[in-house]
Design a protein around this nucleic acid. Structure first.
Length: 335
DNA sequence: AACGCACCCAACCGCCAACAG
DNA sequence: GCTGTTGGCGGTTGGGTGCGT
């Protein structure tokens, strides 16, 4: 039986918010003696608190190297990137953000980033486009009731909403692909680490507007992707898709995706002069983050959600494209 | 001014892993 | 190997605060 240091037996100990006096005692003691033994510290410091409470107060609030205040856009982007790779491993994410505590990052995620992702139609847990019912309800709100015309029949309306929601989910997916094209075609950044060995054939086939290849050729990283030649056809396809995207509902302004007046560009986005689309999580230009995906995964594979962000996108594409119902849909787009 | 609501975040709770005896 | 202790972590809570009505 493991007993918490703050067990019921120690109920006489004070709980709740810390007073300035208690803070001062804790700081003074740790400055003079360090904090080798949290269990013994409260008594030695003259605090009527359990050791655990003291440790939390110190690590989350009183530590001198804590950076307080608003998170920068760079920090926000790093958090999103790391979260897409690590999940809710707040302490490990905090390791990459000097001066930020896991608690602070966790709070920031739950109160800010999570909401933004949901508004963007991205599942904050999986970092995939959302296609579930609740999301569809959200999307319908974004679209607005006026868009849907005849509302005489609730079922008609429901089916319309559902179709719209599905289309928006697809658009979200398209956006992800576009961003990847954007990243690889126009910015020429660390494509190796971002793309891994996932599905270059599918990608190339799509770019060229042809049937998606499902051959069993040896899967190597396409040099066309790593350093893609911007052939006229690729260029045209890119522009065509960009135009399509620009015409989509809730498209992007210079600041990124704007939903309900809330712009989310930093976390998901790098932007280029040629294309203002926000970037994918996986397409971060942050070298730290790119390296971290690999090193972290090597360290503890069990901690990660399935697939890299990049493969997640490709998997979603593959699934979508395999669906006969959408073949003509995408052909129309790509033509 | 009073009230209700939503949001934020410090702090707590419970679980787990590492370690010592 | 077993048991108890300790520290670390992630999830959750609830008090404080701001804002709208």
């Amino acid at each position: 039986m493991v007993r918490s240091p703050c067990s019921p037996g120690a109920s006489a100990l004070k709980k709740g918010p810390w007073t300035p006096d208690e803070d001062e005692k804790l700081i003074d003691y740790i400055k003079r003696n360090g904090h080798e033994n949290w269990k013994a510290l409260p008594m030695l410091a003259g605090l009527n608190r359990c050791g655990k409470s003291c440790r939390l107060r110190w690590t989350n609030y009183l530590r001198p190297d804590i950076k307080r205040g608003k998170f920068s856009e760079e920090e926000e982007r790093v958090i999103v990137n790391l979260h897409s790779a690590l999940g809710n491993k707040w302490s490990r994410i905090a390791n990459h953000l000097p001066g930020r505590t896991d608690n602070e990052i966790k709070n920031f995620w739950n109160t800010h980033i999570r909401k933004k992702l949901l508004q963007m139609g991205i599942d904050p847990n999986t970092h995939k486009p959302r296609t579930d019912l609740s999301h569809f309800l959200n999307l319908s709100q974004l679209l607005g009731a006026a868009q849907f015309g005849n509302i005489a029949s609730p079922w008609n309306n429901f089916l319309k909403l559902q179709a719209e929601a599905t289309q928006l989910a697809n658009i979200q997916l398209l956006r992800n692909l576009l961003q990847m094209m954007n990243t690889n075609t126009l910015t020429n950044i660390e494509s190796n680490s971002l793309l891994g060995s996932q599905n270059p054939h599918q990608f190339r086939g799509l770019v060229n507007g042809t049937t998606i290849s499902n051959t069993n050729e040896p899967t190597t990283i396409s040099q066309d992707l790593v350093n893609p030649p911007v052939t006229p056809q690729v260029h045209n396809d890119f522009q065509a898709i960009s135009k399509l995207w620009a015409s989509c509902e809730g498209g992007f302004g210079p600041e990124g995706l704007n939903i309900n007046g809330d712009t989310l560009s930093s976390s998901y986005g790098i932007q280029t002069e040629q294309n203002p689309l926000p970037a994918l999580v996986s397409a971060s230009t942050s070298p730290v983050t790119s390296i971290d995906y690999q090193t972290e995964r090597k360290g503890d594979p069990s901690n990660y959600s399935t697939g890299t962000p990049t493969s997640t996108i490709f998997e979603a594409w593959e699934k979508l494209i395999d669906d006969d119902n959408y073949s003509s849909y995408w052909n129309d787009i790509l033509e």
